[in-house]
Computed example of a mutant assay.
Amino acid sequence: MPELTGIEAAAERLLDAAKTRVPCAPVRDLLPDAAATTAYAVQSMLTRHRSDRGGRIVGRKIGLTSPAVQQQLGVDQPDFGVLFDDMAVPAGTAVDTAQLLQPRIEAEIALVLGSDLDGPHIDLASVREAVAGMVPALEIVDSRIAGWDISFPDTVADNASSGMFVLGGTQLDFAGADLREVEMTMVDGQGRTVSSGSGAACLGDPLNALLWLARTCYELGMPLRSGEIVLSGALGPMVPVSAGMSFSATLSGLGTVTAEFSGNAGGAT
């Protein structure tokens, strides 16, 4: 059998962690360089593997939208991952932590596209025009890498540390809303505030994040399509999750979204 390339070995390591539910060592040392294109090559290999087994792509998620997190990881850009249909948790359905490894939760604005974002001249005006709807969302981020010991190549390769997501029940028309003004408060099951922030915390404006995503996806040959969901980035700090917990996030002007967690997993580390 021919020896695996670094990209193939990284994909195999992450696949094994997802299958066994045992977090793995970082993959950065397997990769020939720390370039974003190399890390996305691993992610693309994992995306094809999932698609070949029946997974249906429903959108993207944007990560690393906080300047503080970018500084922590030594990067100057966001990253993105792919959302599959089986990652969506219907509102009112408990999230099974047994399907996750090291879950954490964060509140975001989900944007629903009404038209494609495809072409070399995507700008903020075309992005604004493409958004049809918005809805409050909770993203359950997860890492296949032990102890969240991640660098930029690690999280990109690992589908931007994606897990699951929950959308609020009512999608609102976008109609040129100013997402910078959205205020978010997330509370736990005891009503304690565990995270807060605003739309301005997401690259200054969640539409800036969507613009970056649209341009990047076009350059990578996988443009955004009408009907896709985009989780535009965290509005506040992420919070560790374990079975038995619940969270509710209220986003001003958008509504409230809630997630409950069941299962036997030990929770985040």
Rank of each mutant, 00 (worst) to 15 (best):
M134G: 05
R21S: 09
G54D: 14
R50C: 10
I109D: 00
T170M: 10
G176H: 07
S246Q: 14
M186A: 07
L203I: 03
G263W: 05
P136R: 05
G119M: 06
E228V: 08
D116T: 13
M87F: 07
L73H: 04
D85T: 13
D154L: 10
V82C: 07
Y218E: 13
W212D: 09
L46F: 02
S196T: 11
M1K: 14
G114F: 02
D158T: 03
G189F: 12
G267N: 14
V42P: 00
W212M: 09
I145K: 05
M186P: 15
S246E: 13
I150P: 02
A214K: 08
H49A: 15
M238L: 05
A259R: 13
M164T: 06
Y40L: 08
I62C: 13
A68L: 12
T97H: 12
D178S: 03
S242G: 10
A91E: 12
A41S: 15
G119H: 06
C24P: 03
C217Q: 06
E183P: 00
S246V: 00
G163T: 03
T250E: 15
S115F: 00
V27R: 11
A110V: 01
L117C: 07
E8A: 15
L46I: 14
A35W: 02
F165T: 07
C202G: 08
I140R: 14
V127M: 05
F261R: 12
S126N: 08
Q190W: 09
A9C: 03
Y218T: 15
I150R: 12
I145N: 04
A94F: 07
P240T: 01
A68W: 04
V89P: 02
